[in-house]
Design a protein around this nucleic acid. Structure first.
Lengths: 68, 68
DNA sequence: ATGTGACTTTTAGTCCGTA
DNA sequence: TTACGGACTAAAAGTCACA
């Protein structure tokens, strides 16, 4: 597995669902657009460091959890 | 410590120096601009996921090592 | 509640200098 | 060998209408 965008996306989705959150809700909490978050989860975006930090924060996770 | 740009920058510099590489060399290996790599090491840049992956690869490290 | 394409705006990322 | 600035170009950030 070498596609890191996909990997991050899967982690975001997994952690989000584990908390019972909708994309809409996580998008709101991390202050990014709903459709943009969807793109990240599907591995179609190449998010910046700070965007990933915002998502990790909103999930109550360390950044490490997104690239595990 | 909450400034992730700084944190990543310090990790990149530490790992680079541990391998005795110049910025020029690491920039070349990771296919990013020399001046941009300098900016990342100084914590002034917000690199994308794929740029961090390229740097980690060039360092022979996992991405995790950059955000440790 | 999520996926997608076609956007516009902002910033990442390059390339040129200088010190 | 590294820091930093300015001017650029490529790509990320962010939005929208529709399925």
């Amino acid at each position: 597995m070498e596609d890191w965008r996909k990997r991050v996306g899967e982690n975001v989705r997994r952690l989000r669902l584990a908390r019972g959150l909708s994309q809409e809700r996580l998008a709101f909490d991390s202050k990014i657009d709903l459709t943009y978050l969807g793109g990240i989860e599907r591995g179609r975006r190449n998010p910046s460091l700070m965007v990933m930090v915002r998502i990790a924060d909103a999930l109550g996770e360390d950044l490490k959890a997104l690239i595990a």
